[in-house]
Amino acid sequence: MGRGGPREIVQLTGDRDAISSVTFLADGKTLASGGGGMVWLWDVSYLVKPLSFLCAQVGRSFTQEEWERYVPEGPAYRKIC
């Protein structure tokens, strides 16, 4: 899809054949998926403030080149740490 359309933001691992429903919990930081008598909870809290998460993971601001590689359709480059 083109810019502005739906795009995958994260790929979760699990038994995809068994998942029949997905929902966010009220906290907005937990994704629940279920099916086949099982429920999986996924911590997606890093999606609430993705730039803060990136800064914490890298321990520094991205370079311009890194930003263009990892955040191509996001906001314009800026130091985040």
Rank of each mutant, 00 (worst) to 15 (best):
Glu66Leu: 07
Arg60Phe: 11
Tyr70His: 07
Val71Cys: 14
Cys55Thr: 10
Ser61Gly: 13
Val10Gln: 12
Pro75Gln: 11
Gly5Ala: 13
Tyr70Ser: 01
Pro6Asp: 08
Ile9Tyr: 05
Thr23Asp: 12
Ser33Val: 03
Ser52Pro: 03
Pro50Met: 09
Gln11His: 09
Trp67Ser: 06
Ala56His: 05
Tyr77Lys: 06
Thr13Lys: 01
Met38Gly: 01
Pro50Tyr: 06
Ile19Gln: 03
Lys49Pro: 00
Asp15Trp: 00
Gly4Thr: 09
Asp17Ser: 13
Thr30Ser: 04
Gly34Leu: 07
Gly34Lys: 00
Pro75Tyr: 05
Ala32Ile: 09
Met1Arg: 05
Leu41Ala: 09
Ile9Asn: 04
Thr63Arg: 08
Asp27Met: 07
Ile19Asp: 02
Val10Cys: 04
Val10Gly: 03
Lys29Met: 07
Gly28Thr: 09
Asp27Ile: 10
Ser45Val: 06
Gly35His: 01
Glu68Thr: 10
Leu51Met: 13
Trp67Asn: 07
Leu51Gly: 01
Trp67Asp: 08
Met1Ile: 08
Gly4Val: 10
Gly34Ala: 14
Glu73Met: 11
Leu47Trp: 03
Gly2Thr: 04
Gly5Arg: 12
Val44Leu: 12
Met38Asp: 03
Gly36His: 02
Phe62His: 10
Gly14Lys: 00
Cys81Pro: 05
Leu31Asp: 07
Glu65Arg: 11
Arg16Leu: 07
Met38Lys: 15
Ser21Met: 04
Gly14Phe: 01
Val22Ala: 14
Gly74Ile: 11
Gly37Trp: 08
Phe24Thr: 10
Ala18Arg: 12
Asp17Asn: 08
Arg78Gly: 11
Thr13His: 00
Leu54Phe: 13
Tyr77Pro: 07
Val44Ala: 04
Leu54His: 03
Glu73Thr: 14
Thr23Lys: 12
Gln11Asn: 05
Glu65Pro: 00
Gln57Met: 13
Thr30Cys: 02
Arg16Cys: 02
Cys81Met: 12
Glu73Tyr: 14
Ile80Pro: 04
Gly35Glu: 02
Thr30Gly: 01
Arg7Gln: 14
Val44Gln: 03
Ser21Gly: 07
Gly35Tyr: 03
Gly5Asp: 14
